[in-house]
Design a protein around this nucleic acid. Structure first.
Lengths: 226, 226
DNA sequence: TGTCAAGCTCTTGTATACAAGAATATTGTT
DNA sequence: AACAATATTCTTGTATACAAGAGCTTGACA
């Protein structure tokens, strides 16, 4: 556990940026934030440094910190990398799967199913997240797990958006079933391929979704993309 | 260009850590560093924050910043991920290769060859680095390029070490030739596979190398691994 | 009226001062 | 002599003070 104020502030700002409270290019004023969080500029500056390291803000010398949302092209690029990382997780997980993790994965899958039955998008979202997190762990590669989690988090708002596409939740669950089967039978290459496609298709669905958009009300975390 | 002192200090400390000047677990005292760099604690602290973000040091609240070298297991894990990222670069590069980048790649390959003829390990190392950097760019995915560069940099000292293995430089160049051919003919899957193996083999060679070691004089950037 | 420049203001970058927790030394007790 | 409790010192975390560059305002001139 951390007792540093800067960490807490970073967390808050990160959430605010990821949920779209701060639009692209918005300048984060140190004094304003200092008042808002009731601390001095020092911990604010530390938080901004950390956000810059995660590439959530751009730090321009003598100018300030500016929120930096990924553009459309960058987003597609990120999905491309995420697909590969998940594919690797799948390949390794198929070889290194443990009984306990497999059963946890099945539980998460059950969670997806019942959420789908209830039409509870939020619950589906959480169970889906759990499924993927477990998969990362099953890779048995903690560095990979950390990297996958990092990117997953970064793509979180856009994945959520993409899940709202018509029929996507149902299709996603079908894919999960196939993935679970491949993992259970230890079919490494099948797992890798299925998972890569599973994520890649998210990027493509997202692409489709954006193509029709281009005029979205603010505050949805999308308005900053061209 | 940046005019901030903290960035400069970060750069210096990063080099010092990567080259092994600071061993694993060493505590970086803020006051000491402030004297050494002739600045106050403020920019030192900012530099340490950034290093913590890159996972080069661990920041323990109220205790300080401790250098954190990857252990053997983590290193193998990192090579595993690096192999996959390079593989992806190869797959994309084969599809998106431009004439200009291909010719640059060939130039870098020439550089490797002549360095090998001269027995100049250092020159070979630089040309090899150039080869891989160009490959990343050829992927046409700037996010992937950035991630690959980041991890490449992190593995740099160990890759260098590994190149000293007997016959490895020669073998590496043979692999480069095959990779170039696959890229030139636009064979995406072959490029991906060859590059993945090219890096994976580095991890394995590294493994071999370590197996015999276990008693290395200090200052080589290896002593911190079990 | 538009443009450019000098000065002013505002914000960031750095240094220093202060607060509080952690490590260490000291002293008293068994 | 060994251990525990306490006091002291040292280091980090935070606040404030100071320095300097960026941008804006105002005014002069074309």
């Amino acid at each position: 556990m951390t007792t540093r104020a800067a960490d807490h502030i970073r967390e808050k700002l990160e959430q605010a940026i990821l949920t779209g409270s701060y639009g692209d290019g918005v300048r984060l004023d140190e004094l304003q934030l200092a008042e808002k969080f009731e601390v001095s500029r020092t911990p604010i500056r530390e938080a901004l440094q950390m956000l810059a390291a995660s590439d959530l803000v751009e730090l321009i010398p003598r100018r300030g910190a500016f929120v930096r949302h990924p553009g459309f092209v960058e987003l597609v690029e990120m999905f491309e990398v995420m697909a590969e990382l998940e594919g690797l997780c799948g390949r390794l997980a198929a070889r290194r799967m443990t009984d306990s993790l497999l059963s946890e994965l099945k539980t998460a899958e059950q969670g997806c199913m019942s959420a789908l039955d209830d039409g509870d998008t939020d619950a589906y979202y959480r169970a889906n997240e759990q499924f993927h997190t477990l998969l990362y762990q099953a890779s048995g590669n903690s560095f990979l797990t950390a990297e996958a989690k990092r990117l997953h988090k970064r793509l979180q708002p856009f994945r959520r958006l993409q899940l709202q596409a018509r029929g996507r939740m149902w299709q996603s669950m079908e894919e999960h079933k196939a993935i679970l089967l491949a993992l259970e039978t230890g079919n490494a290459e099948a797992s890798a391929g299925l998972l890569r496609d599973h994520v890649a298709i998210q990027g493509e669905k997202f692409h489709d979704l954006m193509a029709g958009y281009h005029a979205q009300p603010a505050g949805q975390g999308v308005e900053q993309m061209v």
